[in-house]
Design a protein around this nucleic acid. Structure first.
Lengths: 84, 84, 84, 84
DNA sequence: ACAGAAATAAAAATGC
DNA sequence: GCATTTTTATTTCTGT
């Protein structure tokens, strides 16, 4: 592969990453905006984050990771009313 | 605002966040794929990251410069019809 | 208050902070060690962190914060098997 | 290792972490108190933080220097009986 | 697979 | 009280 071709390829790869990172940042900003909007409406952002985390846990309740948490909770005799 | 409306609003806000987080994760995966491709082609990923970081810094500096020039222009009542 | 006295006082305050920060760092290191030990014994550190976070929630289940989470969860019809 | 023993071990590890985190929080509170005291006495807390950060940086640099000197000394087979 | 480093996300604190 | 800035915590990545 000639150096010229390699340089072009590298430039393309870098530009793809940069564009994707730009989009990613844009979405991060959107998320921040949504939370800002929620806050302005009177919702508690921290509680919302907790709910979102819980829903993610529920969604992945078949994960190995969640199974381990369940096992540990059982070992400690914790009453998980929120069934993982 | 009735409780029903608030609950609906809350659900919508949370679902928007969840959808955005999903998209964000998708883009993060795309970025990883690009680096994987680069690596497979024989490029040094770490060096690429360094270049990207440097370009971001430079862009940042350029943006700052633009902001300063813009401020001066505004102070002089100039209409800047083109990008600096 | 003379400058000499003020300087001495300032030095004392700063040294107190520095000593406390040293102790804090020492404890942070101890925590890391405990997790390292847990890992070496075969426990899953991430799951342990989840359990610790849950126990903290339980401990503060009378918090206003938890009440809000409960309210939101109820509004979304979430089944909280883990009673907050 | 039986499950009972593992559960006990897990509980002990978690309780150790929890106790350490409690101590850490206590020290964080102490630090906050010292800054509160300093502020009440008329000192500029932000400036104090800057000084503390600078001293930490300097200590860091000094430690690095010591490490380098120590390395050289070791290379020469010297016994350093005193702090550099 | 693991340790260590870097990046990101979340929480806390200060100042207005 | 809100917004900004700092800290802290978690996650992710990379090299060994």
């Amino acid at each position: 592969m000639s150096d010229v071709i390699a340089a072009d390829q590298l430039r393309l790869l870098i530009e793809r990453v940069e564009r994707l990172e730009g989009e990613k940042q844009g979405i991060a900003d959107d998320i921040k905006d949504v939370f800002g909007e929620a806050k302005a409406t009177g919702f508690d952002v921290k509680a919302m984050r907790t709910i979102i985390a819980m829903r993610k846990l529920e969604k992945h309740k078949r994960d190995e990771q969640q199974a381990i948490v369940g096992t540990y909770a059982a070992a400690l005799g914790m009453q998980l009313a929120f069934d993982i």
